[in-house]
């Protein structure tokens, strides 16, 4: 049992963090919003140069071949800095599809172009115009489209970093490159990975939101002292820290289970996502509260991160869906619950 990250994993993560720290600032995010172009092509290039875009792509396709546990660490940082480019779940999922299906690998040979991935759990197309191709995951089929031929309807998200397009795939073959059938297990695997990735985004966001709140409470003074010295404020943020702490190991275990094809991977992923949803909600509320009215403004950066959480809580498995899944699973597995089964 070694539940820690390797030195290599931490070094890679830290290098990426340094990049994000100086290149994905709230100012830059806001300027993307103002230009109505949150997807920054130059930054996308840099992500490629850093090896992030290809990090989980198999080496035979020119990637680094890193596992999902490592992806998870990277995605957490993408969440922490609210990186607008949907590298998070999107690129890692399209890489997974390529790794796991030679057919898809042949169809997606667009080196490091953005490939948008949709599924009923994340149905709106992200950054259609910035993508070269689109992969739509059906129940047990996978269809690949040329993005430029898709004529959808633009949708406005509460998170201006999310450029969304609605498109009805059913009975439409405009831009259709190919449909692969009998893909149930691959679809399942990718959707499960999506759960884990979106959970990682939420944990990263939660950490950032709490950091912002803590810093604010040191700075802002009322009654002649920093508001962070008031116990009511301390306890709100302490509770937030507790929620974050107890989501992390569940998240990394879920990624590990996917990497190792654990038969319970979907259950583990659902646990991770649910924990992350609850953590992010509590952290967001308490942190907003600690800011007072200032937190409720467009000007303060806090909302950049909070609103991103609103979306990620819902895509790739939301509370209701996950709870139903877990409850059914538990009823089936009842004889096999309890502490001695944690790692089977």
């Amino acid at each position: 049992m070694n539940f820690t990250f390797s030195e290599d994993q931490e070094i890679f993560r830290d290098a990426f963090k340094r990049y994000l720290e100086s290149n994905v600032t709230p100012e830059k995010i806001r300027s993307g919003w103002e230009d109505n172009n949150p997807f920054n092509q130059a930054r996308w290039q840099e992500l490629e140069e850093l090896g992030i875009l290809q990090s989980n792509l198999d080496e035979k396709y020119g990637g680094l071949g890193l596992d999902l546990v490592t992806s998870c660490l990277l995605v957490e940082e993408m969440g922490y800095y609210a990186l607008p480019e949907p590298a998070a779940e999107q690129i890692f999922l399209s890489n997974l599809l390529i790794n796991k299906s030679a057919d898809i690998a042949k169809l997606i040979d667009d080196k490091n172009q953005f490939i948008s991935v949709t599924h009923s759990l994340s149905p709106n197309i992200l950054f259609l115009e910035n993508s070269s191709k689109l992969i739509n995951l059906g129940e047990d089929s996978i269809s690949i489209f040329f993005s430029k031929d898709i004529n959808g309807k633009k949708l406005k998200s509460s998170d201006p970093s999310r450029d969304l397009t609605n498109f009805i795939f059913e009975n439409s073959d405009s831009g259709l490159l190919q449909t692969l059938n009998d893909q149930k297990s691959l679809v399942n695997n990718v959707v499960t990975s999506g759960m884990v990735m979106s959970a990682a985004v939420l944990i990263g966001l939660s950490r950032k939101i709490l950091d912002l709140a803590t810093a604010y409470t040191l700075d802002r003074k009322q009654f002649g002292k920093p508001i962070g010295s008031f116990q009511a404020v301390k306890h709100m943020l302490a509770q937030a820290a507790i929620e974050i702490e107890f989501s992390k190991a569940t998240l990394y275990r879920a990624a590990y289970s996917l990497d190792n094809e654990n038969p319970l991977q979907k259950l583990h992923a659902a646990q991770a996502k649910l924990q992350a949803i609850d953590a992010c909600e509590m952290v967001s509320r308490n942190s907003m509260q600690a800011h007072g009215a200032m937190g409720y403004t467009w000007e303060m950066d806090l909302h950049i991160f909070i609103r991103r959480g609103w979306s990620y809580k819902q895509v790739w498995g939301n509370k209701s869906l996950l709870e139903n899944y877990i409850m059914n699973q538990l009823e089936k597995d009842l004889p096999k619950l309890g502490s001695t089964y944690t790692f089977l």
């Binding site: 049992m1 539940f3 820690t4 702490e245 107890f246 989501s247 992390k248 190991a249 569940t250 990394y252 275990r253 646990q271 924990q275 502490s339 944690t342 790692f343």
Partner: peptide
């Protein structure tokens, strides 16, 4: 309870 266990193992 699971989250606690996983955390403690970590």
């Amino acid at each position: 309870a699971e989250a606690y266990a996983l955390n403690i193992y970590q």
